[in-house]
Amino acid sequence: MNAALVRETALWAFWRIAAAAIIVAAMAVAASAQYCTPDQCDGCDLNNCQLDCCHELPELWLVNTRCAPKCNNLDAGFERISVQRYDASCRRFVKSSWEELLAEEASMPTLIFAHGNTLQHKGAMDQCWDVYRKMRCCPGKKRLVFWSWPAQIDHLRPLLRPRQLILSNLRTKFTYAEYQGYYMAKLVQRMSMTQRVTVGGHSYGGIIGAVSAHFIGGGELRGLKLAGAEAVERPNFRVALVSAAFDNDSLDVGGRYGQAFVAAEKIYVTRNRTDSTLRRWPNISYRCKPAVGVTGVNANCLGENAHKLCQQTLTSDVGSSHYIEPHLGSRRFMNALCCVAFPACAECAKAEQTKPVPPQAAKLELKPAA
């Protein structure tokens, strides 16, 4: 009797464990499937590679925050940020001001773009020129505001092991980038938004763009809140995150940067599961989460704002590289960035679609096969 009862109890326990394992496995598959949704972007064809990269260059501005406070007195520090305008006729930057930058904001769409981690100002400017030249692919008048921030190595010779030194630098710069988002938000808040304004960046620069949108949407972070910000959508306000280096649930409803999707009318995100740099992000994350630049954003966690997500997989375009150069070399990426940031790109695409077929081409199409 007891032996039979033991066997029956053991069998029941086995089936309970097996059922639990099946449920856990199913949940894991479902969770991973949430990040395997197809590329989507209302209003933009993410696979269109028919770019004519012979348009006019953008108007170029440089915002340099390297001499401004990094973590405190940010409101006063905002007035110490260097603002310069590129004079193409003289081929040099000239000193300018926030007022002059804002005075021309209503005349053309603006992309505010921040570089990634570890770059000194010289390296940041090399990237600035790369982005500037590639923006010839975007039709229409446009403006690039390049954001140079203190991303250089911060801890040079501490009493730390190499691995600890790298981790310390990465986390310090993560903190700097979040505070930079406050600076960027203060600039955006002053804009009229009569023309499209897109904020964003590459890698850690993506943190700056996302945090900026979070503050614009009334969010709080590190004890800071943008005065006058409201939890409402700002028409003509967009975000572009390229290989962004932050936790992949940060943009979710209630996430660390959760108000970004509230403020923006569209957020463009690139993802690459083979990114050799971001695949190590769980070792850097305080919460051991994967990076948004690897998995992308889970649309199921965005609630009523899911339709604002514009997501593109670039694994086949850039391989395992995390750097910005392969992205700029991708026609698919440049098409998507142009389409998201500049309205003239969509207008140009519509014009191409409605262009009548030349009579000779029509005859060739109707000719029967031999």
Results as ranks from 00 to 15, higher is better:
Ala3Leu: 14
Leu5Lys: 14
Thr9Ser: 09
Ala13Leu: 15
Phe14Thr: 14
Trp15Gln: 12
Ala21Thr: 13
Ile22Met: 12
Ala26Glu: 07
Met27Val: 14
Val29Asn: 05
Ala30Gly: 12
Gln34Thr: 10
Gln40Tyr: 11
Gln40Glu: 09
Gly43Asp: 03
Gln50Ser: 11
Leu51Cys: 02
Asp52Arg: 12
Asp52Gln: 14
Arg66Asp: 03
Cys67Arg: 14
Cys67Met: 13
Cys67Ile: 12
Ala68Asp: 02
Pro69Phe: 10
Lys70Val: 13
Asn72Val: 11
Glu79Pro: 02
Asp87Ala: 08
Asp87Leu: 10
Cys90Tyr: 11
Arg92Thr: 13
Lys95Tyr: 05
Ser96Tyr: 05
Glu100Ser: 06
Glu104Arg: 15
Thr110Ser: 14
Thr110Glu: 07
Ile112Leu: 14
Ile112Asn: 04
Ile112Pro: 01
Ala114Phe: 00
Asn117Leu: 15
Thr118Ala: 11
Gln120Arg: 13
His121Ile: 13
Gly123Ser: 09
Ala124Asn: 01
Ala124Lys: 00
Gln127Thr: 12
Cys128Leu: 15
Val131His: 05
Met135Leu: 15
Cys137Lys: 09
Gly140Asp: 06
Gly140Ala: 01
Arg143Asp: 06
Leu144Asp: 03
Leu144Gln: 06
Phe146His: 04
Trp149Arg: 01
Gln152Leu: 10
His155Arg: 12
Arg157Val: 13
Gln164Cys: 10
Leu170Glu: 10
Phe174His: 14
Thr175Phe: 09
Ala177Asn: 01
Glu178Val: 11
Gln180Ala: 11
Gly181Gln: 05
Tyr182Thr: 01
Tyr182Asn: 05
Lys186Met: 15
Arg190Val: 05
Arg190Asn: 08
Met191Asn: 03
Ser192Arg: 05
Gly201Thr: 00
His202Phe: 04
Ser203Met: 00
Tyr204Phe: 15
Gly206Pro: 04
Ile207Gln: 06
Gly217Arg: 10
Gly218Asp: 00
Glu220Gly: 13
Leu221Ser: 06
Arg222His: 08
Ala227Leu: 12
Gly228Pro: 08
Ala229His: 00
Glu230Met: 13
Glu230Val: 12
Ala231Tyr: 01
Val232Phe: 10
Glu233Pro: 00
Pro235Ser: 13
Phe237Thr: 00
Val239Trp: 06
Ala245Met: 07
Asp247Val: 07
Asn248Ala: 09
Ser250Gly: 07
Asp252Ser: 12
Gly254His: 08
Val269Gln: 07
Thr270Ile: 00
Trp281Ala: 03
Ile284His: 02
Ile284Ser: 12
Val292Gly: 08
Val294Pro: 01
Val294Met: 10
Thr295Gly: 02
Thr295Val: 02
Thr295Arg: 14
Thr295Pro: 07
Val297Ile: 09
Val297Gly: 03
Asn298Gly: 07
Ala299Gln: 12
Leu302Val: 07
His307Trp: 06
Gln311Glu: 11
Gln312Ala: 07
Asp317Phe: 05
Asp317Lys: 05
Val318Phe: 04
Gly319Arg: 05
His322Asn: 02
Tyr323Trp: 11
Ile324Glu: 06
Ile324Thr: 04
Pro326Gln: 05
Ala336Gly: 00
Leu337Tyr: 00
Cys339Pro: 01
Val340Ile: 15
Ala341Arg: 01
Phe342Thr: 02
Phe342Asn: 05
Cys348Asp: 15
Ala351Gln: 11
Thr354Tyr: 09
Lys355Gln: 11
Val357Glu: 09
Pro358Gly: 01
Pro358Glu: 02
Pro359Ile: 10
Ala361Cys: 07
Ala362Arg: 10
Ala362Met: 12
Leu364Ala: 13
Glu365Cys: 09
Glu365His: 08
Ala370Gln: 12
Ala370Cys: 11
